[in-house]
Write a protein that binds this DNA or RNA. Structure first.
Lengths: 148, 148
DNA sequence: CTGGGATTGCGAACGGTTTTCAGTATGATG
DNA sequence: CATCATACTGAAAACCGTTCGCAATCCCAG
């Protein structure tokens, strides 16, 4: 079967090799924000003859073709997600590493306004919030209990 | 003369070596966001016997002591600024690389609200806006006119 | 002044990423 | 369907910012 991203790649006229097909499949099935090593790990499970160099190259290719987007979470390695039409941001749970996506038109508008007041036109932006669950935070003083 | 940051370091009980004094001076005099190499370059001009390793070590020390703050602008290397009480963010001019600092209580409030709605308590956050000067943007408006 | 723990300079090591190069596969063409 | 130029791949080396190990050196409490 042809994965979502594979179809997108073909639309964009990219040459579809076996490795690219596998990587596209991995990315189509991912619902998280894997880094290159993780993508490679998953790809190798489908076809063991895929090298990490090819994954790096393919990620860049897909990024340039705007099929995927790089997410820099400040942890020293690039993470990726499928490109989406709507701009969104990330809230990172510092306890679990879980990443929650959110969007806020108000926030977008406010950023536009701030940039405009400074005499600038926005060409890109990025917002990350690091946080801990409210209930965990409440527990902090008198923990200890394990989270489900 | 004792630089602003040197005084701060002594307050915090850090052992003041010649190298640390020089690096403190460099950072006190900086009004930009230098990376480690740049700090080293400036430090060497004052005292040539300072190694890059010491600069790296000192930057980390000062960061841990909360004398300076690391700024990750996504360009692959760490940049630094003096620690300030008020939270602010950065607008990066993509033409010149100039960095403009700004703060917005409204924005802070909105982020708190968003995090709260998602069930989280904020422990950190970061916002960067990349932009081009409005007047420059007008120059090339005809190219981008049809883009939203 | 002096001694010993902290700090330094050097170079080697590191982790993520890119590149080089020789061999291989792709898909346009005949 | 075979051919072929071309683009792609794997493996290893190069890269780049950063950290580390170690012997020499420095700071400052005694």
């Amino acid at each position: 079967m042809t994965s979502r991203l594979e179809a997108l790649c073909m639309e964009k006229g990219l040459k579809m090799t076996g490795q690219r097909r596998v990587i596209s499949q991995v990315l189509s099935e991912a619902d998280d924000h894997p880094d290159v090593e993780e993508v490679h790990r998953r790809a190798v499970q489908i076809d063991p003859r895929i090298s990490i160099a090819t994954v790096y190259r393919t990620m860049r290719l897909l990024e340039d073709a705007q099929v995927i987007e790089r997410v820099d979470l400040g942890d020293g390695r690039a993470r990726y997600e499928e490109a989406t039409a709507d701009h969104h941001h990330h809230l990172i749970d510092t306890r679990t590493g879980r990443i929650i996506e959110f969007a806020s038109p108000e926030l977008e508008a406010m950023k536009e306004r701030i940039a405009h007041e400074l005499g600038y036109k926005i060409v890109g932006h990025r917002l990350e919030i690091y946080g801990v669950p409210l209930d965990d935070a409440a527990d902090c003083a008198r923990d200890e209990e394990e989270r489900p």
